[in-house]
Nucleic acid binder design. Structure first.
Lengths: 180, 180
DNA sequence: CACGGCATATATCCGTTCGATATATGCAAG
DNA sequence: CTTGCATATATCGAACGGATATATGCCGTG
């Protein structure tokens, strides 16, 4: 899904600035679902505006720079719906953490343990934040995705916690063998 | 992690062609860990070769086009190790599936159910393929990542299976309300 | 039998995206 | 007082993706 569609999705839920759209893909509702950078969001909004799918309104603010609030048009809603019913592309995952873990045998055991502990802590934090987000009044799909995220992150944190010692020990042992 | 590092990682485990490196990020060991396209792999290999981090050897083949097999140099191994001990970037996830799910209320209930069932089937298939890959003789890190993948995909499939009916019913019910 | 699709291979092109940067207004902490 | 952060918009140049081109075969279908 391209950035234009992602922007339409955010705007379908309510007016937003480019900055707020970026936030939605960081700590907001889409934070673990898709990514979008400023470098792509602003040109996308400009193209969507040009195509009549969104409308931007400039506003002055006190103590803050001016902002431009975008709202979705009916044409934008149609386009968004078409994108929703198109066949989804494949999930794409880029995880430095997992890639590094794959080569655990090349790392000092202490560094490895620290890496895993940091990730466990990260998962626990995410889980806490997610649990604090009451989705009781959310739409069915939002609740569903929220629950799925909780289940997956819980499983990951649990696995990491349950197996970190064993990986550490094995890397320690083989690290010693290499040194001999 | 950039594509050059990813290529070094694959080559650190053994010589490979550009095509084989791509395969490693599809159905191979890195298939759920990172992504890399031909458009990025070939220029990366060229740059790595230029920098003396890999070495390419052209080979003729029978019944197949010629190929170029790359091997990693000592300089390449050093660079790879430096990348491994650098702080990892954040995981990046792009999931059309999850994004669409978020807007389940906008979809026909039957289409939604089909989408989820397809994803459940996909997870089950992945799990089967992963279980069939015996990692008993693999390195500790490979075994760890393999086990983590199994745990996470199992949790996802289970959650989807356990909650798909409820989502379907809720979207059906609210779809009827909209029609009235 | 012929054609299309697939697999194995390399390489490139152009559109898309990213991350850093620039600019602006304030506020808070050291 | 200076730096870093938050809120905002916008752009630039590097990195990447997906399609395409080319090549050699093989296999399945009409």
């Amino acid at each position: 899904m391209d950035i234009k569609t992602l922007c339409l999705g955010v705007l379908s839920r309510g007016d937003a600035t480019g900055y707020e759209i970026k936030k939605a893909f960081e700590e907001g509702p889409f934070g673990h679902i898709h990514v979008a950078s400023f470098g792509a969001i602003y040109p996308a909004l400009a193209a969507l505006s040009e195509a009549g799918m969104v409308q931007g309104t400039e506003m002055a603010q006190e103590k803050r720079p001016d902002k431009k609030v975008f709202s979705i048009t009916e044409r934008g809603r149609s386009a968004f719906f078409e994108a929703l019913i198109a066949p989804p592309g494949e999930d794409k995952v880029r995880s430095d953490f997992l890639f590094i873990l794959f080569f655990a045998h090349l790392l000092p055991a202490s560094r490895l343990a620290a890496l895993i502990d940091r990730r466990i802590a990260w998962y626990r934090e995410c889980l806490q934040r997610m649990e604090a987000c009451s989705y009781e009044n959310g739409r069915a799909g939002e609740v569903f995705v929220h629950g799925l995220g909780l289940a997956v992150y819980q499983a990951a944190a649990d696995y990491l916690s349950a197996h970190r010692d064993r990986l550490h020990d094995e890397v320690s042992a083989s690290g010693r063998m290499v040194a001999e």
